[in-house]
Amino acid sequence: MAFMMKSSMPGKSKGNKNAGGFVKTKIKVWAVVLWLVIWEAAARFIGQEILLVSPVIVLLRLFQLAASAGFWESVFFSFVQITGGFFCALLAGALLAWAGSFFPWIKEMAAPVMAAVKATPVASFIILILLWVPSRNLSFVIAFLIVLPVIYTNILYGIENTDKELLEMAEVFRVPWGRRIRYIYLPEVLPYFRSACSVALGLCWKAGIAAEVIGMPSGSIGERLYEAKIYLETPDLFAWTLTIILISICFEKIFLFFVDKVTEME
């Protein structure tokens, strides 16, 4: 997993690359349509809904589900838990990175914890945390743990790579801290922060929902997915998965839109 996104830094990369350093290709409508046709053809060929459901049926099932209040209650529950964990990790990661950049002992103290969190399988965390916290807060804690090291590492990297010459200038000219943060640190850190958010948003939804499937908090998307699996309701499984994908993409787009607006202002 790429936690450091140097290639996506402005002025440091050539071409259209994403956080992992791979060339980012814009998704074309024709490619999506082609894959939907292949999916439909495969579903018809297999002819067993329980193994592979047609995309049309998935869409119809999604509309049916969306018409019920329970659907929106589950979406709301999971959304609040997972985005809550994401925002708390954002705040904690930023504060910790800020403190770590000024006090090396904080950075040294945090290093093994961050390394452990990064390396530990999500499933281990989920099982362990289920022992400590109620299952309804599990996805919050898991989203927090998954996002924290990504945000911390990237913001710390951004702060540590802030132009030392500009910082010396600010020191000599007695520039107040507020202005230093606004005009010297923020323009350097924001691109790293954006890349970190882009990666962390996808990760937190995947891990958060996985946590809900294992912990099965009542009224969550994870519980609905688990029920779909137990009762072999493949259309429901696909419809809920599509829901998660849509929420994750929409939230990521909206959040990054605001981050980009702030970056443009800088």
Binding site: A170, V175, I184
Partner: peptide, 27 residues
């Protein structure tokens, strides 16, 4: 003593204009 300095390098914020660079230190 308030010290001001012209460094060997320009040490100006590249994204800011001249007015804002001066205002950064002057307020």
């Amino acid at each position: 003593k308030k010290i001001n300095m012209v460094f060997q390098e320009d040490r100006l914020c590249p994204g800011l204009n001249a007015i804002d660079n001066i205002r950064l230190v002057c307020g």
